[in-house]
Design a protein around this nucleic acid. Structure first.
Length: 194
DNA sequence: AACAACCTCAACCGCATCAGA
DNA sequence: GTCTGATGCGGTTGAGGTTGT
């Protein structure tokens, strides 16, 4: 990918190199990191003589050159984990990445923005629709119960004697998902404490 | 075949936080 | 305590690829 942003000649002359990394740059950077370690990025940048800033070198190393980087598609299992972690942590990409060996925060962020956010929106719309349906049913249930109350009301106006036993729990159909999430979250937090 | 619209992902930017002097 | 440089993080951009018309 020959990524070269539109820049004036002056900027090109004075600013550090920008755009896509070449194989040669990667090799030089890896070489310097091998001898000096992955810290003091500004020093690394100058030792590698790449005409790139320390920040760029760090990013390149973390997202591309670092060993044990897992390349390729995100598995269903990983996707599920990302979804759960995002639910728990929000856009804390580096924390999420920390729970996915071999994956980088940038990769997860990109995956979220291009795949999962769309999925969530889609699901969100479905949930909205089903919520609307639930509200309709709820409204109807309340109407019916009020009608029944009216019918069973003694003519002296007392509430006693009503046959309507209204159980609030019957209105909600809880799935096991919330319970599972709570259990999973506890396990996750235990991992951090360990 | 040509063009537009959309998608992906590497790289950049700005800000926040950390660490050492 | 505070100043300064280094590092880390999340948001954004845009080139190149893919798909649709």
């Amino acid at each position: 990918m020959a990524t070269m942003k539109k820049e004036s000649v002056k900027t090109m002359e004075t600013m550090p190199n920008k755009g896509a990394w070449t194989a040669e740059e990667d090799r030089k950077l890896a070489e310097v990191i091998a001898t000096h370690g992955a810290k003091r990025w500004r020093t690394i940048a100058s030792k590698a003589a790449l005409n790139r800033c320390g920040k760029s070198c760090r990013l390149r190393w973390l997202n591309y050159l670092r060993p044990n980087i897992k390349r390729g598609n995100i598995s269903d299992q990983e996707e599920d984990l990302i979804l759960r972690l995002h639910k728990l942590l929000g856009n804390r990409w580096s924390l999420i990445a920390g729970r996915l060996p071999g994956r980088t925060d940038n990769e997860i962020k990109n995956y979220w923005n291009s795949h999962l956010s769309k999925k969530i929106n889609k699901k969100g719309k479905q949930i909205e629709a089903s919520n609307r349906e639930c509200q309709k049913i709820e409204k109807k249930t309340v109407e019916i119960s009020l009608e029944l109350k009216e019918d069973n009301k003694p003519h002296n106006g007392s509430e006693e004697g009503s046959n309507v036993n209204f159980n609030i729990d019957d209105l909600f159909d809880f799935t096991d998902e919330d319970t599972l999430n709570m259990e999973w979250m506890s396990r996750f937090l235990e991992m951090d404490e360990a």
